[in-house]
Amino acid sequence: MTVAAEDPRTTPGDLSDDVVSAYRRDGFVHLPGVISRTDAARFAEAALAARDTVRDHHDGAIFTQLLQLWRHDETLRELTLNPDLAAIATRLAGIPLRLWHDQLLIKEPRNGAATEFHQDQPYWPHAGSRHALSAWVALVDVPVDRGCMTFIPGSQHLDGLRPQDLSDHGDMFTVAPELQWERRVTVPLRAGDCTFHNSRLAHSATPNFTDDPRIAHVVIYADADLTLAAEPAHPVTDPLGLAVGRPLPDEHFPRFAEQ
């Protein structure tokens, strides 16, 4: 009798020094099976339900962007606050972390729009941040033609750039023309797989050419000790009336246990 092999899984205990070194060198790492395929399907169902009840924060065809799911949905809260994900992120970053925010990024079927190369950090009002990174968890299979991610390894050294236009293919290369000639790595994911990427790493995603939605749940981890900057404006912090120059409040941006 042939016994089917289990899907590969990654836990905090599996994270080798080589993987941590690769992340810090390249700015990203692909980890298989950070959640099970069964859990991925359960979270995908909750994500599609949330699409009908949570405000879309993105105006355009690139993707549907739903923020702060951990405050809206008990099932997705479980994923956002997953202690194994947080432990992996903390090991990769090497500093104490807190939640910045989570988001669902859904590329609708045959959306026809790429997410062009950009960094995440310029969109966030963070001061004194030593490190921030995102866990991009695939809740469905994401082959190349469904909107998977492409990274430019090592580009996380670029600091102080303005926000880039996600709909403009050339904008990233206007502010950092040297990146046009750098190697690119495209990473298809199975449901339950995850990539972690540095907030300053240049990355993009292909359009969704398939008949099914691409569903990714992103957990963004930030330096636990950063303070709020005066700009840019941000939909997560702006409604809270927070004081510039102060640490983020734990009740809105929970800290994760140090490993």
Rank of each mutant, 00 (worst) to 15 (best):
M1I: 14
M1W: 12
R9P: 01
T10H: 03
T11Y: 11
T11C: 05
P12E: 12
G13E: 15
L15K: 03
V19L: 14
V19F: 02
V19I: 15
D26K: 10
D26F: 04
G27H: 06
G33S: 07
T38C: 05
D39V: 08
R42P: 00
A44R: 10
A44Y: 02
E45D: 15
E45M: 06
A46T: 08
A46S: 14
A47T: 09
A47C: 11
A47P: 01
A49S: 11
A50D: 14
R51N: 06
D52Y: 03
T53H: 13
T53D: 13
D56S: 06
H57Y: 13
H57T: 14
D59R: 14
F63C: 05
W70Q: 09
E74N: 06
T75W: 03
L76N: 02
R77D: 10
E78S: 12
L79H: 06
L81I: 08
D84V: 10
D84K: 09
L85Q: 05
A87N: 05
A89P: 01
A89D: 02
A93S: 14
G94D: 08
I95G: 01
P96R: 09
R98A: 10
W100Q: 00
D102G: 03
L104Y: 05
L105G: 02
L105N: 03
P109I: 12
R110A: 14
A113Q: 11
A113C: 03
E116T: 12
F117T: 00
H118T: 09
Q119W: 05
D120V: 04
Q121E: 14
P125L: 08
A127P: 00
V137I: 15
A138K: 00
A138T: 04
L139P: 01
P143C: 10
V144Q: 12
V144I: 14
R146P: 01
M149A: 12
F151Q: 04
I152D: 00
I152K: 02
S155H: 07
L158M: 08
D159T: 14
R162Q: 13
P163E: 11
F173L: 05
L179H: 07
E182R: 15
R183M: 12
V187E: 07
P188A: 08
P188R: 09
L189P: 00
L189Q: 15
R190C: 07
T195F: 00
F196E: 08
N198D: 15
R200T: 11
R200M: 13
L201C: 11
A202S: 15
H203A: 07
H203E: 10
S204Q: 11
F209H: 13
F209D: 12
T210Y: 04
T210V: 07
D211W: 01
I220L: 08
Y221V: 01
Y221D: 01
Y221N: 00
Y221W: 10
D225T: 13
L226C: 11
T227H: 03
L228H: 01
L228K: 03
L228M: 09
A230T: 10
D238F: 00
G241Y: 10
G241A: 07
L242W: 07
A243M: 09
V244K: 04
P247R: 08
H252L: 08
F256M: 09
F256W: 11
